[in-house]
Design a protein around this nucleic acid. Structure first.
Lengths: 213, 213, 213, 213
DNA sequence: CATGAATGAGCATTCATTCAT
DNA sequence: CATGAATGAATGCTCATTCAT
């Protein structure tokens, strides 16, 4: 499934070759994700990012204008990756209800794989300037939108019982449910395996949404 | 309702008089909460904390050993405050179900009042050394425990229908539901007032827990 | 002769003790004058200034807020020193003409002693932000004013023949004559000793101003 | 009037074709004069010079070996331009005195047009290595020489009364008088128009040189 | 010849922490 | 106990210069 087009903040670069910019920024992001997840944004120096990315500090600044740009690119990349995993794993079921159950399980597994990144988003988004934050929140909203669409579909085909006014909230509940596995893992993993977590949360949810799973 | 005793990390101080230490640390925490909420932990300098607290940088370091100590004290204070608000507002209902509904509403309002502090916990807990983080997570767990107790009570008196294995998770769901009002406010507040948010979330929950609100 | 009061830009400092600020800034200025004269403002690093002043870079920044502040303080100090030397050496003669001759000789000798500083002013004033430059140009104008007063005095007592409209220009000519000894020394010193320079320039000037020296 | 030949520092280049070198350096100098005048030598980057000159940074370094070379070329060009304007505008009068009056007026107007360049010379010459500075000072001396020649001519034909020993100094006085219009413009322009400035200064000078204008 | 990506030494500035008074 | 001046390691960022293509 293709990612739809979307707004992205354009980050200034000194380099003209667009392919090169994309390639190097990929390296920067890979390096930074690893470092930010391990040490946090503020504890990571630009020199470390450059070194980890495999080039010099001077070269780093050919492709970004400030350290904050790296954070923005990282947030972008995380959301893009999440959206890819979300859409790739979605299979249309017979009913909205089936689609939802499948999408949730798939999403939860993605959250499990990307738990460090999810924490990163929660911790460092606030270090972005307002303009960048806008874009990041838009991405967050797009992900929520995926579930909202499924909920709407289920409401239309009658397989899910939910008030229209409650669907945005329910979609957010589902999304946060995935994040929760990341940021409350210190507790949850003591009591539930990932599969159990998915099973119980899905059961509770489906209960809310009328009838059996 | 009294707060039960609990473990707290002991922070070294150069000052002997324990009452004085408590008083000054109160000042430090008040100053720091305000600053950390407004500017974040890393953006706040120790000098600013001292100034806002009303004394010199030298004095600040008589009562703490490092900036991170301030962060720990702040996290402690936030959880203490939250727990106080939680327990103060709880009134025993006729059934566990009634108690729960009341506790949730009360908790949500507390989260609304303390949204900045909640964000702070989400963003900066990771800046603590592991030992401090332990204590903070314990506090988080205590808060969750409040809801778990109510759920158990409702399960015992038959007013709530929930698997024993699901209660810890349900308790976390409730707690995170409050946090969500803080960290997703950028979206939620566009669609729901606090009262609506409480109403809809409670309805969904009660649905999960069998029958009507 | 006392220096009259005058406007000075107030430079922010982190240190409260005003006497200490004055003392340390004196050290900073002494260090910076020496370094700026030898290497220029841009070629001098803040660390060098601190080291030469005898303290650490951190301490330097307790007394100034930016490198440019040092430049401003240096310019201020140079003009203050020049004005002191100017006023100290002035002795009232019987006529304005005599006072002038004496003031010029005295001023020229001051320019000779302070040639490095004069060059510094010519080269680096443009590195000041407009606000600082204002103050520096005011100082320059005050020095010129000294000669203008003497010229006026001589015009009044009839010992100097000069149009009122020409006095400001004449005063500037005299001032620049002193500077010229600094910035054209590479040529002038090949042909004239300081005394000769003073003698010839004074002769030319007095010729302009009517009659003999 | 042709410019006489003169010594020029030879700047190394990677390019063989001498015409090409001359053409490109012309571009470099034009770009750099504009930038240095506007922002100063140190505030201008080599990339800006290349961009303004219309080619890449790599190409820039085909025609010069260091940023300082650009400064030298700029100083050279400024003095060349000044000398051209000086010699172009000079018309032989009946007497040295007339020639002088005319040359001064012409020179002053040139200084007025080139005030930014004059300031540049005053401010940045000291950033040259001694060898380059030598050449620049020689150029300065050549310009002074123009006036010295005229003074000598006037002394010979009896139209100017001046000691032979005073002529070099007088020539420098004239030259600096032009510069003064540039570097004291912040004061002078408040009191005099260019024409007034020329008139008064010429009057004072001619007074020094015996008799009326 | 022309290009422009890569380099890394260098710089101004900050800030947690100490310690003499 | 309180103060606040002193410290210097650390950091984000710049820019002259090089060199492979």
């Amino acid at each position: 499934m293709e990612l739809p087009d979307r707004d992205q903040k354009s980050i200034p670069t000194l380099v003209k070759d667009e392919d090169l910019v994309r390639a190097k920024r990929r390296q920067i992001v890979d390096a930074a994700v690893e470092l930010f997840c391990r040490k946090g944004y503020h504890q990571t120096t630009t020199r470390e990012i450059a070194r980890q990315a495999g080039f010099s500090i001077g070269t780093l600044y050919e492709y970004i204008a400030s350290k904050e740009d790296v954070l923005y690119l990282v947030c972008e990349a995380i959301h893009t990756e999440m959206e890819i995993q979300l859409r790739e794993g979605v299979r249309e079921g017979a009913t909205g209800r089936e689609t939802l159950a499948h999408a949730i399980a798939n999403y939860m597994r993605a959250c499990d794989r990307m738990q460090d990144s999810i924490l990163l988003i929660y911790q460092e988004t606030s270090s972005l300037v307002p303009e960048s934050m806008q874009y990041v929140l838009q991405n967050e909203e797009r992900i929520t939108g995926v579930f909202q669409d499924i909920l709407d579909q289920g409401r239309m085909d009658g397989s899910l019982r939910i008030e229209p006014a409650a669907t945005p909230l329910m979609a957010h509940n589902i999304v946060v449910m995935g994040h929760m596995w990341a940021f409350r893992r210190w507790f949850l993993a003591k009591h539930y395996s990932l599969d159990e977590y998915i099973a119980v949360q899905t059961a509770l949810l489906m209960n809310e949404l009328g009838g059996e799973v």
